[in-house]
Design a protein around this nucleic acid. Structure first.
Lengths: 347, 347
DNA sequence: CTGAAAGCGCTTACAG
DNA sequence: CTGAAAGCGCTTACAG
């Protein structure tokens, strides 16, 4: 019945109004100088018809799709929702859409994901790289979100400073024997967090790192971390480099009958959804993903739009990387456990 | 230095080989009949140049973008990674890309997210709707993943049957007093799970539902669910409609000094990442997201591709909905806690 | 088996 | 202030 069988285009609006498509285009984009009465009439008609510009037509003409790709190391990563949401939001504000690509599995999948996006004509790509991966020049603008220690990184949370916040917090609570829980010594993010944490410990504080090996399917009691033993050795604080490990520690300790936070403290990183639903809630470190995303998108967009501007102006800056920015966004401490260790030591 | 300054196109390949663009196009797509020697030569040249067809050119010509939209109720939802990963995979196999749109916040955001995708020219949309939302005809093919109780649903896990699996499991362990934990009486998914669960309980089994109210920021002890009290009342099984609630229950019980699974059982739903890292690991229900995604994408693609086929053939089928399919995918039980209740009752 | 031509919808110099 | 024209890269009837 109604005319939504086929989307209206510029020619139809032009035909209905007896003007040229150029004028309609100019009126709608506000670029060419069109008399305000005509422009109003055109905009009105476009609205009445529910006109939507064809992205294909525009992309073909301008050479830009206004779509960005997002590649994540492990899309099943619990941090993913936060990142994707923030990136989509920032991109949307800047007038871009986000095409996702899963790169789970090995490193070759990451490369494959990138080329899939390139084939789809994205104008640029946001990458959260796999651990230990170096992003090669892919002939397209790229923004990397990882850690300042990663070559080519564009923006990241200040993981080092986040580690410092945890250290300060635990020290202030009176802890003197800390166990750090990590799962991958090759992760720049984890190493930064651990480095920052250690950097703030007074000389008399004892600190060890426990690397949790990857145990995919690990039911039953076979894969306990041995934290009860650690408590017996006098450790009173368990600082995990992610909420997931903190959760693991918390439940293992609780199961062993150790009271958190009265006997020991457990802290996480990332402020994931469950850190607030567990009892006791986890003290953790929150990152400002919206800001990180905004910086990444802005960097990417400025590279994309610089390319279309003056062509041969600055040969000194790398053509496709947004890494010149190299910003770090401060993290913040979310305290949800306030008790200290059983007895407080003098300094 | 090298020629990746600008992407090669059909004309360049044609020019280099002294043939027409039509022939190159035909050779590359395998459609027109081109002699195999020529076709090989063309494919070789295309590969040498690193030719990638322009999606814009193709989309403009064919009227199809080969991009699908994905709208999720709450992108920060912990289930999101699984869904997004499965959908992206299935779409990729079918030759489509996935554009994401965040619809967090109220229902109007969902509508907005949908139009943003439509403006970007997607060929169809996969929607996991907000609770209580009915998806209007948006003039574009749609596949809905929610629950069979949702009008217009295309495919979903068989939540009812999942609930039955939980009931059978708990009954087999000897439980006779169950507490179901839900958080939203308006959720079709939750109601299906609860309905299925209840449908399998023998008449002599006592069962209550505890609706957990939404408490966004809920630290300290103010927001306990009072499960210790329930244990004192004789409840021995806590069946949550999601792993998140199960986690909440588990930690609250452990904190109260109740031993899981020796004293009480805790079960979840969805098999999220953390259900395996907690101690004790959670018994839960796993859904076959890859299969659900595949069915959703196939339904969507078949509607999209039927539209381009015979035009006026069947006016009886709804133009844009893939819901004729209405498939349900069975769920499976993952047992990670095997103990029964303290004493076993006779039937 | 191969090619010339048209056209998808848009934007952008360029004329008037 | 407005319009005629070209062209982005592709595919698809249609001729030959």
């Amino acid at each position: 019945m109604n005319s939504n069988r086929t989307r209206p285009n510029l020619s139809q609006i032009a035909g209905l109004l007896g003007v040229s498509t150029a004028t309609v285009s100019n009126a709608l984009s506000g670029k060419g100088r069109v008399s305000s009465e005509l422009a109003d009439k055109i905009r009105g008609m476009a609205a009445d018809l529910g006109y939507m510009p064809s992205t294909a037509g525009r992309a073909l003409r301008t050479g830009r799709s206004r779509v960005l790709g997002l590649v994540l190391p492990d899309i099943a990563n619990p941090l993913f929702p936060q990142i994707a949401q923030a990136i989509e939001n920032a991109a949307s504000k800047a007038g871009y859409g986000i095409l996702i690509a899963d790169s789970r599995g090995d490193v070759s999948m990451q490369t494959e994901a990138i080329s899939r996006l390139l084939e789809r004509g994205v104008d640029g790509i946001v990458i959260v790289p796999r651990r230990g991966t170096r992003i090669a020049d892919i002939g397209s603008p790229v923004a990397v979100i990882d850690s300042p220690s990663t070559p080519g990184n564009t923006v990241s949370a200040d993981h080092w400073q986040g580690g410092q916040l945890i250290a300060d917090h635990l020290i202030a609570l009176g802890h003197r024997k800390l166990l750090i829980l990590g799962n991958n010594p090759d992760s720049n993010v984890q190493n930064d967090r651990i480095g920052g944490l250690k950097s703030r410990l007074p000389a008399d504080v004892h600190c060890e790192v426990l690397w949790i090996e990857k145990q995919e399917r690990c039911h039953g009691t076979g894969c306990a971390l041995g934290l009860q033993q650690k408590v017996e050795e006098g450790f009173t604080a368990f600082a995990a480099v992610s909420d997931l490990h903190a959760l693991r520690a918390l439940t293992e300790l609780q199961r062993a009958g150790i009271r958190v936070p009265e006997q020991v403290s457990v802290t996480g990183f990332d402020d994931l959804i469950w850190s607030t639903v567990v009892t006791p809630a986890l003290t953790t470190i929150h990152m400002d993903m919206p800001l990180i995303a905004e910086i990444a998108i802005d960097a990417l967009v400025s590279v994309i739009e610089r390319d279309s501007g003056d062509s041969e102006a600055g040969t000194e800056q790398p053509p496709n990387s947004a890494s010149a920015t190299r910003q770090q966004v401060p993290m913040s401490l979310i305290v949800r456990q306030t008790s200290g260790p059983p007895q407080t030591f003098p300094h």
